[in-house]
Each structure stands twice: as structure tokens, then as C-alpha cells.
Design a protein around this nucleic acid. Sequence first.
DNA 1: CTCACGATCAGCT
DNA 2: GCTGATCGTGAGG
Length: 240
Amino acid sequence: MSRQRATRTGALTRAFFEQPVVDLARALVGRQLVRRCGAGWITGRIVEVEAYGGEGVDPSAHSFRGPTPRCEVMFGPAGHAYVYATQGRCFCVNVTAQGDAGGKAVLLRAVEPRVGLELMRERRLLRLGDGPTRRELLAGKDHQLARGPGRLCVAFGIDRTLNTVDLTDGDGPLYLAAAEQDAAPRLAWSPRVGLNPTSASFDWCWRAFDRDSKAVSAAPGEHFRGRRGPSPRRCPARAG
DNA sequence: CTCACGATCAGCT
DNA sequence: GCTGATCGTGAGG
């Protein structure tokens, strides 16, 4: 899978992103997310993602009913950022997949911090009151800095101004780079987080995560009010 | 216009 | 571990 040529900055090339969306999801786990901040950098290792199947395929994709001003970028070329505000409080960042097929993208759900921890901590703390979450970060639980799609965007300074940016541009504000040399993650697959467990698409195991990372976020069904989903083991583990 | 929605935090049990 | 408050956008009346 490492036939992608590294550029000067190590940015992944367009061909990498032009894969079927579930394949792209699999391939993204273990790669590095790189955020340029002025003279400095923030980087981390992607440990959890979700594939979204696009127009007419996936009822939980923003693109299901076709392009809207919000999700338009999902209908463009592969390898661009789709950043949206989830009901106000947070942003989420997605990576667009094969551009000709209509609205397919991979949501980045969690990252293990590598470089720029101080800046990430500063950004997270800026938005917190004096509660348990603040105390956790001050106690050195760095795996919590970018655990979850909204927290990831806060830690990396990702907001709607980065919507549509080209993630293959190693000179840009945000891009994706090759994995560290050691890291072939042990992958597991599960239903996506936050779906109603009674919905048909709950059975699609389109969430991929690194079984060995503490930075992986919620279990499937955890955020769905009032009900617990079936165990992830119900999903056949797919070959990594 | 109203309504539903998802991720997070704080506060409580 | 659970619950309520909160926010911006899209969809429906």
C-alpha cells in the first residue's frame, strides 16, 4: 500500500485518495495528519475514521440527497477537506474520496498527538471551563487531546476556513502524510458511532480504528440517547 | 417560520 | 454512567 511517492513534504498524492471510500478509510489509519501553524507544526497519527457512502447510498451522509452549499466539496475531486459545523459547537473534518462517484468521504474521528502537544493543549484549554475535562488535560492525559472528531478539530485548529483545502498540498495549511515506519496498525471494524441501532446502516461496519490506541473515541451506540447498540463483535472483523 | 439533529462539557448520581 | 444545555445548518410547512 506504500506505492505512493513521497513528495518533499511527505504529502500523500492524489492517487492515494482516489480509492473506493471504505478502502480509503482503511488506508488512512496510521497515516499522519499535519497542520501548519505559522512557523510551527502540529502532527498526529490517525487512529479512527468512518467511511460515508455518498449520494443515494448512505442515509447518514450529508451528501445523501445530492449537493448542497454545505457539502458541495464532497462532489469535487478526491483529497480535499470537507469541514462542517456539527450543530454549532464543534467542527468535523472529512477527506473526500473518488471524486467522480458522488459525495463519498472519510470522517477523521481521532488522532494520537505526536508534535505540538503544547499548542494542542493550549487550544483545548482555551475553550474549557473549570471542569473535569480541564483537570484531565492538566493531569497529562494527552491521548484525550484529539480523541473525538470535534476535539480533533480544536486541537489542530481546524475550522470552516479550511473547508475545501487540498490535502495533497504539502505547502498548504493541512495535509496528510505517510505513516511512521514502524506503524502497521492492528485494525478493527465496527458500526459507525452515533447511528440509531435500529437503522439499516447501523449494520455497515464502516468505522475503522486502531485496536491498540488509547486515543480511539466512543464505542458504537455510546452517543445514541437511551439505547445501547449491539456489541461491535457482531460485526465480522475484516482483514486489515 | 419551526423543528431536528451531533458532539461536547458540566454537573450530578 | 447518565442527563440537560448548547450551538449552526438543512429540511419541511
